[in-house]
């Protein structure tokens, strides 16, 4: 199946690991990734904070380009990009005024958009089977951290899992042989979006999440959201400094662990790009 892949600005930068691991696992799972031709930044929260038209037009241009490349599905692993693309497609199909504006601005006509826009968990959750597991992740205890953006609010952004107690990543981890610990912070907000307006709130949110994860007995936090992963991994030293804690919890993308269980070597999954190095943990379990 041909899947349009929209890396967005973060996957070529701060979320390198996610990009690398998605590329490594896709073809063994039967997906042909096609990078959206000449994609542009979706504008994320900035475009819609500054005006209506650009917040629609920037992601709409990407969706249209993906459609033109003959793909059936579209994924944008960054949840901010995903949400913008999802809403832009909705507007392309339902909001005739906005569509006309876009057609006028680019001097082109556009038909209805039918490409299926899926978030990063949705793309992989039904494709991984036990047949893909070459090296089970035995002994690895994890907490699955979905964060808020991928699951809330369900009606607006395409329901795919429970907004309070999601299960999709837990099921994937179980399938890979890791042990998913149930914990209360699955969908707690990490506050990445507040890092400019209220950095104290960001640190506190990170501290709380890391604390509950550690108390649950997890070796690592499994993430799907680029903002969460970045925030918890990169700011762990800042949190330790501020609160006098000694957290040393690797924050790993679920796609990296899928790859590891499929027998793909760690350096091809971006496992050397983390701030909190997951290698010692993985080596101790004979997984690296």
């Amino acid at each position: 199946m041909k899947v349009a892949y929209y890396p967005g600005c973060s996957l070529s930068g701060s979320a390198r690991e996610l990009d690398t691991s998605i590329k490594a696992i896709s073809s063994p799972l039967g997906l042909e990734l096609v990078e959206v031709p000449d994609w542009n930044c979706c504008g994320a929260s900035s475009a819609h904070s500054t005006g209506h038209f650009l917040s629609f037009a920037l992601p709409a241009r990407n969706v249209i380009k993906a459609e033109g490349a003959g793909c059936e599905e579209f994924t944008a692993p960054c949840p901010a990009c995903y949400v913008r693309s999802f809403l832009a497609q909705k507007q392309l199909n339902d909001d005739q005024t906005m569509k006309q504006h876009l057609e006028e601005a680019l001097d082109q006509k556009f038909g209805p958009s039918t490409i299926k826009i899926k978030n990063v968990i949705e793309i992989f959750m039904d494709r991984v089977t036990s047949l893909h597991v070459k090296k089970a992740l035995n002994g690895l205890k994890v907490v699955n951290y979905y964060g808020c953006a991928l699951v809330k609010p369900p009606e607006t952004f395409g329901f795919f899992d429970d907004p309070e107690n999601p299960q999709s990543m837990d099921k994937i981890m179980d399938l890979l042989g890791a042990e998913s610990i149930q914990w209360p912070y699955k969908t707690e907000c990490c506050s990445a979006s507040l890092c400019f307006t209220n950095q104290d709130a960001t640190w506190k949110a990170c501290r709380d999440i890391l604390q509950v994860a550690e108390d649950s007995g997890a070796h690592a936090v499994v993430a799907a959201c680029t903002l969460c992963q970045n925030n918890l991994d990169m700011r762990q030293t800042q949190v330790n400094k501020k609160y006098g804690t000694k957290f040393n919890l690797p924050v790993i993308y679920f796609t990296q662990l899928i790859g590891l269980a499929m027998g793909i070597p760690g350096h091809k999954l971006g496992l050397d790009k983390h701030f909190v190095d997951p290698k010692p943990l993985l080596k101790s379990l004979n997984l690296y």
Partner: peptide
Amino acid sequence: LKGKLSFLPHKIKDKGEIRKLYDYA
């Protein structure tokens, strides 16, 4: 050091289209 920031900006080819969207806005 981890290759997560690059010194040079990434650019798209068709910057004209982006310009058109901004102008229209």
